[in-house]
Design a protein around this nucleic acid. Structure first.
Ligand SMILES: [Zn+2]
Ligand SMILES: [Zn+2]
Ligand SMILES: [Zn+2]
Ligand SMILES: [Zn+2]
Lengths: 133, 133
DNA sequence: CTTATATATGTTATATTATTACATATTGTT
DNA sequence: AACAATATGTAATAATATAACATATATAAG
């Protein structure tokens, strides 16, 4: 009926939920997603959270931790790295994924006091976007 | 009876909750805080959340967004900047505030595509701590 | 000291976000 | 066909956070 993870395709629920997030101009919250996919037969929170978990795992979407909201990946490398950076406008809540190779290089090479490096991180910048300034 | 914000002292509830967080070896969650301060007369979630909000605002504590938990500031400059960085062990959940002037300088000077700078940010690094490696 | 204003507290109820537990179905593999 | 792994369905509940309203306390001004 449909193809599975070996080819990295999405399952039915994952596809429905990814499509919704991907076409949304703004990050979506889990229960707002639930409300929007009920006509497609997804009725329970857990169905949404399970799909979200997998999509995050695959790097197709990211969670904006400070907002409990989900956004489609706007880069190409996140599937591998789980290294994410966003700018968040505190006025209008516009959220953009930052793709800066110098930033990602700097952070991937950053060493803490113990000399430890971290390939996985999440950075959220806060300020005012172009429009709101 | 007690002194107020002009001298930046804490109110009764703020002090109780700050003391608890400050002496905790690990970040605390709101309802765990609530449970621990009920003997001191703080009975409702809202009392905890209000104190937490103020303490975060003052820079005395920080919220670990990916964990919904609160940790006392381990630096000295956070009261001003709201620019925070943490390392999180995914094995044992040990969380440490990073104080690296090169990191904070790099991030404070980082410009996005639109040339925008951000003095406020939150960075969470994930990996394994010394013990767990 | 009195009044006004702002800030903090107390209390109940409720909203929002996320997971546990268990049953069933589907997929990919042998 | 049989098996194991993954995905789905469903109900109940746990965990996190806020709204609304009443009261109290603290600082500032007159
Ligand atoms: Zn991405
Ligand atoms: Zn804006
Ligand atoms: Zn700090
Ligand atoms: Zn560890």
């Amino acid at each position: 009926m449909r193809r599975m993870h070996k080819e990295n395709n999405l399952t039915k629920n994952q596809q429905i939920i990814f499509d919704l997030i991907d076409k949304s101009p703004e990050p979506l919250k889990a229960y707002s997603i639930l409300f929007n996919v009920q006509k497609k037969g997804i009725k329970a929170p857990l169905q949404v959270y399970r799909a979200l978990d997998k999509l995050v795992e695959m790097g197709k979407i990211h969670k904006i931790e400070s907002r409990n909201a989900f956004i489609a990946c706007q880069n190409s490398s996140c599937q591998v790295s789980k290294a994410t950076a966003f700018s968040i406008c505190e006025m209008c809540e516009k959220i953009t994924e930052i793709s800066s190779s110098s930033l990602s290089k700097y952070l991937a090479n950053f060493k803490d006091k113990d000399g430890m490096k971290y390939s996985k991180y999440n950075l959220e910048f806060f300020g005012l976007c172009k429009k709101c300034r």
